[in-house]
Design a protein around this nucleic acid. Sequence first.
DNA 1: GCGTCGATGGCA
DNA 2: GCCATCGACGCG
Length: 202
Amino acid sequence: MLSSLKEDPIKRRVRKLGRSFYRRPAENLARDLIGKVLVHRLGQTVMRVRIVETEAYVGEHDLACHASKGRTGRTEIMFGPAGFAYVYLIYGMHDMLNIVSGAVDDAEAVLIRAAEPLDGLRLDLSGPGKLTRALGITRADNGVDLTGASLFLMDDNAPRPRILRTPRIGVDYAGEWKDKLLRFYDADSRAVSKGGSFPATS
DNA sequence: GCGTCGATGGCA
DNA sequence: GCCATCGACGCG
């Protein structure tokens, strides 16, 4: 489990991702978010993790996207500018972190499903609910500007990971949209949810 | 190792 | 009544 410091992406030169990074189709953004570093400042604590799994929700026509029910109090944030957090509660107990993408009035977002801990942290981030819980991200973070100081992303300055795609998880109700290959993950990460591409470790 | 199921609350 | 989930439980 020991990793070399010189290969640790956060020890290298990195930069915070700005608004323009997010202002593009969710499908494209979801793929590019694999390997990026998510940073959450919580009081004195700063937690950094490397994103290894995402899903794209591509707009009002996507029956798996919350915005398919139109503008509501909850989905309004997705119709706004890119680069803001959309956090909601599911199954009465799990907060889901999404990143609004695309143009204004284009209700797209990317769900952050799993990550690997950095900085020697030992956290289980292998699922969207586990990730928000471990990082202390809640609905209080809904609407937060990701170009701000408390919750943001950084470029990783690392080789591009090998990325695979599958249908999204838990959207069997979404008709033809349930089979679209809009889930992306790092083929070489063991932190991917639901076992991913790795057999159980002994 | 894998399928099934209950918890739990906001939303339309 | 739905869920963009998780973990516990039972199987053999």
